[in-house]
Write a protein that binds this DNA or RNA. Structure first.
Lengths: 329, 329
DNA sequence: CTGTTAGCGCATTCAC
DNA sequence: GTGAATGCGCTAACAG
């Protein structure tokens, strides 16, 4: 593998000059620049980032820790991050935590070994050790999805508590009174919990409460939603609306209704969360809340690139959400 | 940041001994090991991978280049890769190529700067420059999804040509004769093209051919499928089955039928590709082909970890596919 | 605009 | 079982 020394020799300049050309940094005579560039091309030189990283004590890696890759939500966030990073020198290293703070901590530490320029993770809840690393590190930090709390550096997302609250208000306004809720088994999904709490608050303010709940004993999926609704309705007849923690499960709920011949909306309202494309492409578009996942990822990465140094104050960016009325509630 | 020298000093050993403990390599007296370990804990030492990488000329990074993150297919692959990498020291760096070989080449080169232990990419078609880098590099290479061709090192996937062929045979056997095809605009999706060719071959062998095609002028999505089918049926009445390049679009096709009151299967067969969960959770499960995306990612990563050195011979692993009869064709 | 010097933090190669 | 010397390839800080 050719090194910078080889390039420098061929171009008859010093290593540091060649280095400056590679990094497009500092003033370089055009003639010199072209000589170095042609030497690079001739040798097929590829800079060694490990060496560069070591010498400069900073890397072009950005650590991304996501809770899951099992539905399109976090890939959407990742896509936003990647979009912001295209055309920059930064590269995302990704890890999946399975919603487990201890796994998050473990992966975080292993990522810090690369002296990343920034760390992106989901949510504001981390283990004490992880939090300590995040606070004392010499890198930027973005905490995504949620803004209900105190970020280490930047938070980009929406208030899930408020989304749950608005869901409740919206459904009450539309005349629904007998609420059911179908959850999944990921108790560490803080966002889903916050939405749940917001929903309960809205119901309480309306003099109502959830009259039935079912927890599907497994991860979230369309099938989970379908089975959860079936069990919920069997156990508690007379529900007029069921709220799901996300669109995947809500779609499953609709599929159950189609199968069981239940008139969605008239007989039973169905409400989701996320605003996935597929739900909106259905004959009766899913009533749900649109989260801005791509925007969250993109905004966070862009914000992180603005400055290498962590600013004194914390930044909270609310990307908001939209209620999609849809046709299922 | 504490360095190995700090650890060594505190543990009263040399740097190299501390290094051996960190890497769990070479014979170390138990007492020494414990002393070093406690020094590490006391200082909160995190190894600097850039330095390690530079010194050993090998890294624990695995470059992963995916065509897209817009549907769940490649996140599934990534999940498989990540699963295989959990509990190992390896970390995936990911890049998205948007199905563009030139983008793939650019990202590949920028990834090679980290001296990755392995490179994972999709398909067997790359630019000549990319191919050259892959062939001459001192890292393992896995080419995923497709096995119709000559891999650089390892190929893990299935024959898309055969999948298309089997689709055609299957549908002919079920009595369908008037075939339509609804494609999307990604001409560089080699796998979709291969399936298309396989389908045409099967039709030809059955004395048939596609009697209508429509290319949706945009990326693949449920909405694309829905609109494409509508246009296809308007232009060519009398089709009895429409094949889609993937489940997302096929779901859109079903949604159009539901909306337009077309009896799926009896009046119009719908066939997809991928076997996504959501399609199988529908009241009438989608007829499609199950690709083993998670398995492909997992198998590839596991295979790559078996040996750092590239073996003499090339390996092709066929993960196969299953026809899901479903209820829509 | 270009070069010199020094060192980033670790692992390899040998010696003991 | 442990250590000393050396260098990986690059860049920061200065000097000119």
């Amino acid at each position: 593998m050719p090194t910078l020394a080889d390039v420098a020799r061929l171009a008859r300049v010093s290593e540091i000059t060649a280095s400056r050309v590679v990094r497009a940094q500092g003033p370089i005579a055009e003639a010199t620049r072209l000589r170095v560039l042609s030497a690079i091309a001739e040798l097929g030189y590829i800079p060694n980032r490990a060496a560069g990283s070591l010498a400069s004590a900073e890397s072009t890696l950005m650590s991304v820790l996501l809770p899951s890759l099992s539905n399109i939500v976090f890939p959407d966030v990742l896509r936003g991050i990647h979009t912001a990073l295209t055309e920059t020198a930064f590269q995302p290293v990704i890890g999946v935590t399975d919603y487990d703070p201890l796994v998050e901590e473990r992966i975080l530490v292993s990522f810090l070994a690369w002296q990343p320029a920034a760390v992106i993770l989901a949510g504001l809840h981390h283990t004490p050790t992880a939090r300590r690393h995040l606070e004392h590190g010499r890198f930027r930090v973005a905490e995504l999805m949620d803004i209900d709390g105190e970020p280490v550096d930047i938070a980009v997302g929406m208030s899930h508590r408020q989304a749950g609250y608005e869901t409740g208000k919206h459904l009450i306004k539309r005349g629904y009174r007998r609420f059911g809720y179908a959850r999944h088994n990921i108790s560490t999904d803080d966002r889903a919990s916050a939405r749940y709490e917001g929903l309960c608050l809205a119901l309480k303010e309306g003099g109502l409460s959830l009259i039935a709940e079912h927890c599907y004993p497994g991860a979230s999926s369309t099938k989970a939603g379908r089975e959860a609704l079936q069990i919920l309705l069997a156990a508690t007849p007379g529900l007029d609306v069921v709220v799901f923690p996300n669109d995947d499960m809500a779609m499953g709920g609709i599929f159950h209704c189609m199968h069981a011949g239940i008139a969605v909306k008239e007989k039973l309202g169905i409400f989701g969360f996320n605003g996935l494309d597929i739900g909106q492409a259905m004959p009766m578009p899913l009533s749900t809340i649109l989260s801005k996942r791509f925007l969250i990822g993109k905004t966070a990465a862009e914000k992180l690139l603005e400055s290498r140094e962590r600013p004194a104050g914390k930044t909270i960016i609310d990307t908001g959400f939209d209620i999609i009325e849809g046709a299922t509630a």
